[in-house]
């Protein structure tokens, strides 16, 4: 087994006495698709935000390829090779699709301080190639501010891939998309991840997506990991069934 891309050890976070995440540990191998699931309020987003530095854990360690990145700011984490997408898409609305990707590339190449050469001529081919890979080439000239939601998710993915990440964090990558779009997007993401050896951690509500694409699944409930393993194993786990039955989502698991 190759050295893990991501190692998480005993992560803790409380908000004003409420323990949002407690004692979460796991590891993620290159090219592996790991899903983080759980009912609303289980601590998925908190957990996510601690991995890329958006939140600072109260305790525990996060290691990226053996390097301790706990508590680093998101921009530092990104520089070390972690891309991410957001639950509610975050793109630059006043820029075109292409320019959004160019920004990530320019930042990656540390050329954002440039005062003279117009962006139009910088890293455009590389950005186009990325968009092409994501099937967004024909939308390259459209402003992000007017894009359909599903397309925005693809743009985010392109942006997240721009710095050749070793780890990709996707927070509900298919939320708000039509069912067919979901499958297509996840297939695309999984394909890219495998071909480039990127480790992917994603949260998702849609169980079809989860069970279709995850190599492994982590189940979080009230801040704790209650199960982890391959999809079939997790599906059979009585505790998972209980949690999801309790929250009325069992049909997805069934």
């Amino acid at each position: 087994m190759p050295a893990p891309t991501l190692e998480v050890e005993n992560l803790q976070k409380s908000f004003g006495g409420v323990r949002a995440v407690q004692g979460v540990s796991f590891a993620l191998a290159p090219g592996e698709m790991l899903a983080l699931i759980g009912p609303n309020g289980a601590g998925k987003s908190t957990c996510f935000n601690m991995l890329n530095g958006q939140l600072r854990p109260d305790a525990g360690r996060v290691r990226l390829q053996g390097r301790d990145i706990t508590g680093l700011k998101p921009r530092r984490v990104w520089r070390l090779g972690v891309g991410r997408t957001f639950q509610i898409t975050a793109t630059f609305g006043s820029m075109t699709v292409l320019e959004n990707v160019q920004m990530a590339l320019l930042s990656h190449h540390r050329r954002l301080g440039g005062l003279w050469r117009p962006v139009a001529r910088l890293d455009a081919a590389e950005a186009m190639a990325l968009l092409d890979r994501l099937g967004m080439a024909d939308q390259a000239g459209r402003p992000c501010g007017i894009l359909a939601y599903g397309d925005l998710k693809r743009v985010e993915l392109a942006v997240a891939l721009a710095n050749d990440p070793k780890l990709l964090l996707m927070d509900e990558p298919t939320a708000g998309m039509a069912p067919q779009e979901r499958v297509a997007l996840m297939a695309l993401a999984a394909g890219i991840a495998r071909e480039r050896g990127i480790a992917v951690l994603f949260t998702e509500h849609d169980m079809d997506v989860v069970f279709a694409h995850a190599d492994r699944i982590l189940v979080l409930d009230r801040g704790r990991l209650i199960a982890s393993g391959p999809p079939a194993e997790v599906r059979a786990d009585p505790r998972v069934r209980e949690v999801y039955l309790g929250s009325g989502l069992a049909h997805g698991i069934g």
């Binding site: 990104w78 793109t91 440039g114 962006v119």
Partner: peptide
């Protein structure tokens, strides 16, 4: 029109995304 001007707009449009792609 140059990268710095774009960076300014980027942090205006979405501070979250700007930070997430390495911008201070």
């Amino acid at each position: 029109h140059a990268p710095f001007g774009y960076a300014l707009r980027a942090q205006r449009d979405s501070p979250l995304r700007a930070e997430a792609i390495g911008m201070d």
